[in-house]
Each structure stands twice: as structure tokens, then as C-alpha cells.
Amino acid sequence: MQILEGEGVTKYFGGLAAVSKVDFHVDQGEIAGLIGPNGAGKTTLFNLISAALVPKPGTIRFKGEKITGLKPHKICRLGLARTFQEVKIFSNMTVLENVLLGSLFGCSTGMSSADASREAEELLEFVGLSAVRTTPAKDLTLVNQKRIEVARALATKPELLMLDELMAGLNPAEVAQAMELVTRIRDKGITIFMIEHVMKAIMSVCDRIMVLHHGEKIAEGTPQEIAISKKVVEVYLGE
């Protein structure tokens, strides 16, 4: 079953098509990858899905329901959460408060504050941040700030989680931990759609990969298929 699908999704910045007539879909329960050279339009596509930007023209459906034109907070409450390429945390709040906001506001069904804090604590345990729960978020290292974003997104109880370059800027050991975290999230029954530049990571965790280049989708398939695709190799290495 397709949890997310897009039809002819397009976005112009002035005269430049950042994303051009892209059809895509994400299946329920899979880890889908989105790759492409710098400036290919990957983050723009994420912004279009999460409603930071509005596609023109094009439609995006989530669980069969049209979500184009909805406000970001509505989309989040429908069960579609995201993280950001440059971390966007609430710097002067504690780690716990960052995640708590997700629990308190992220889902359509109301939640008592006692339940919300219990849930936030559990998620901090899940991403391994329990020890620093009362530390201001700005005092954490990059890898831990990325974990806050993941926990905050998970606190909104998503069915689909979009990760924008979770592993950028991490060292090899941290990349391995992040990969393990991604599979653990999928094991919770959450579908994942991720942008990644670390090839080793994306090739080993993804079930299916889409490739964007100059705003257009040029390839799609299993990691093996993508690795041997002539077009993809051309785009990454030159002809």
C-alpha cells in the first residue's frame, strides 16, 4: 500500500525549476531513500511534502488523502513528521522540553501532560539521550542535537518519518549508530523516507531508492539496481 504519493509535483524558484513534474511514492513500512547531487531538489521536495513550500502545480497524497495546501502543523498532526538538514532545535530549552513539545502538540488526539512527559522520557531513552534530559539543547554535540530532532519528530506519533541528511557531518561510528537507529524506528512500524549522501548508509538500509537530478526523477529501484544504473553513475561521476 502506498502511504505517500506525489503526482507531477513541481516548484519553480523564479525561472528555475527546483523540482519538475516529479511522480513518486513511498510504500507503507519501507525505508525509501532519496539521493542526488547537490542542488538536485531533494530538500525542496521534502519541503513540498511537509508544506514548508506549496507545489505549483502538483498534488501530494498522504494515506490516500490530498494534503497539498494544508498548513505544516496540520500535516504533522496527520502523522507525517520530519527532521531538518541543518538542525532546527529549540536551543534554549532543555532536551526534554524539546521532545515534550512534540508529544503535547504533535498528534490530533489530545494528551494529558503526565502522559506526554512519560512518552517524551521513553523517546529520550529510545534515542539514547536520557542522561542529558535537563541540559539545554544548545549545549549538545551535533550528533545528539540530531537525535533530539528525531525524538521530537517521533513524539508526534508519525506514520511516516522524513529524515533529511541525518548522517551528514557524523563520524563513521556515529553513522553506524544512526543506521541502527533508523532500522529500529522502522521496526516500530514507522515508514521512513530519507535523504542521504552517505552512500554506504543509504545502500545498506533502504529498500528502494529514488534519484533526483536537476529537479527531475532520473531513476528508481532497489539499491542494487541503482548502483549499476548507467544514468546514475553518469550523473555522479560524469560521462
Binding site: 498532526r77 531538518f84 532545535i89 534554549n92 530549552m93 513539545l101 502538540f105 521530537r152
Partner: peptide, 21 residues
Amino acid sequence: LALQSIGENEEAAAHTGINVT
């Protein structure tokens, strides 16, 4: 708490389900 999060990072607040407007 929601009000404070808007000052910290409005975009992140909106994507965390807060009706910022």
C-alpha cells in the same frame, strides 16, 4: 511552552504540530 518554541525556531515549531499563527 509553545509560545517560547516559536521564538526559538518558528519553522521547527510549525513542523512539530504547533499552530504557530
